[in-house]
Nucleic acid binder design. Sequence first.
DNA 1: CTGCTTTTAGTACCAGCTCATAATATCTGA
DNA 2: TCAGATATTATGAGCTGGTACTAAAAGCAG
Lengths: 191, 191
Amino acid sequence: MNSTRKLIRHEKLQHLLHDNPFMTDEQLAKTLKVSVQTIRLDRVALGIPELRERTRDMAEGAQAKLRAIDKKDIVGELIDLELNKVGISTLKITPDMVLEKTGVARGHYMFAMADTLALAVVDAQKALTGVGNVKYKVPVYAGASLVAKAEVTRRRNDKYFICVKIKNNNEEVFRAKFIIVSLDDERKQEE
Amino acid sequence: MNSTRKLIRHEKLQHLLHDNPFMTDEQLAKTLKVSVQTIRLDRVALGIPELRERTRDMAEGAQAKLRAIDKKDIVGELIDLELNKVGISTLKITPDMVLEKTGVARGHYMFAMADTLALAVVDAQKALTGVGNVKYKVPVYAGASLVAKAEVTRRRNDKYFICVKIKNNNEEVFRAKFIIVSLDDERKQEE
DNA sequence: CTGCTTTTAGTACCAGCTCATAATATCTGA
DNA sequence: TCAGATATTATGAGCTGGTACTAAAAGCAG
C-alpha cells in the first residue's frame, strides 16, 4: 500500500501541530522527511490552515477565552433581581468545571454562583460575605444548567441573611445560607 | 508645534491597537489619515511590532495564560500533605481576584482554596464535598499571601470531617468546616 | 507495459511587512 | 524671509510563508 505511509504521515502531522502549532510547512517537511509540497497537500487534505491563520485563530480564540474568564467574574448570569428581596441567576456547567477524576462539577463553582448572587441582591455599594453554610445535595455533571435563587430572609441593620438554592432541572442540588455584611458608611438604612 | 500632531497620533495609534490589535498598517493609515510609511515610523518609534508578530505574541501569551488558568484549577499551591491527616497550601491574591467596588478578595477564592485542599487531604480516588460551613473573619486585599491548613478532625466510614483555616500573616482570615464524602467503591477502609 | 495514485518540482502571485534612500512638506528660529 | 531642522510621503528592493496552478517524476498494482 502506498497510501498507508500517507495516512501515517497525516497522523504524525496532526500530532506535530498539536504539540507545536507554530511550525512552518518547511519545518514540518524537514521533520517528516518529505517535500514542502507534500505537506501543503496534506494540510489541504486535512483542512489545516496555514501557520498565519492558525496563529491568528489562536490569538482571537484566546482573547475570547480570556474575556469569558473575565465574565466568569460574575459567576452565572443574572436574570432577575429585586434588590433586598430575591435574585435569580443561571450558570451552565462546562466540561472544564468538573473534576477529572469524577466528572463532577467542582464545588466552588456552585459556591461562587451562590455567593455572587447573594452579594448582588444586597443593595449596598460595598458588601462582604460574613459566614456561609453550604450543603451539596446532589452531584452536578457537565452540561447541567443551574438556576440559583437567592432570598433575603432577614435583615438586621447592616447584616443580611440570605438563603440561596440551586436547582438543576427542578432538582435541588445545592443550598446555602449566607450572612452578608453591608459596609455602606451610612446611606440607606430605610426601605 | 509640528510634533504635537505626531504625539496625538501616537496616542491614537496605541489606542486603536489596544482596541483592535489585528489592524494592518494600511488600515491604520486610512483611519489616521496619514501615509502607510508614517504609520511604520510611528510603530518603530513606539516599539510596536508588526501585525504578524503581535498576533503571534498574543497566541503564545494566551496559551501561557490558559495554562496558568488550568493550574488555577488547583486553587493554591500544595506545599505539604499528610493523607487523611493534614494539608497545607498557599495562594497569592492577585488584583484580578478582588471586587472592584471594595478591593476585597472575592469570597469564593478562599472557599475554593479551602475546598480544594480539603479534597486533597482525603485519600480517596473520588470524593465530594457534602456540606460546608464557612466564616470570613477579616477582609483580604490584593497582594495577600494566604496559607491554608486543613486538618481531618474526625472520620466515620466514608465521611471525613475537615477543618480548614486560612491565615494571612499569621492572622486568621477565614475558617471552614467541611464534610467530605468519599465515593471509593470499596478500597481502603483501613489505615 | 499501462494506468493509477502519490510525491516532488517549478512558476506566478499575494499580504504584510523591513530596510534603505530620497524627495517633499511643514514649521521654527534667527 | 530664508536656511535648516523636523516630519511626512514616496519608491523600490527583498523577505517570509504561504496559495494556486501546471507539470513532471516516482511507485505500485493489475
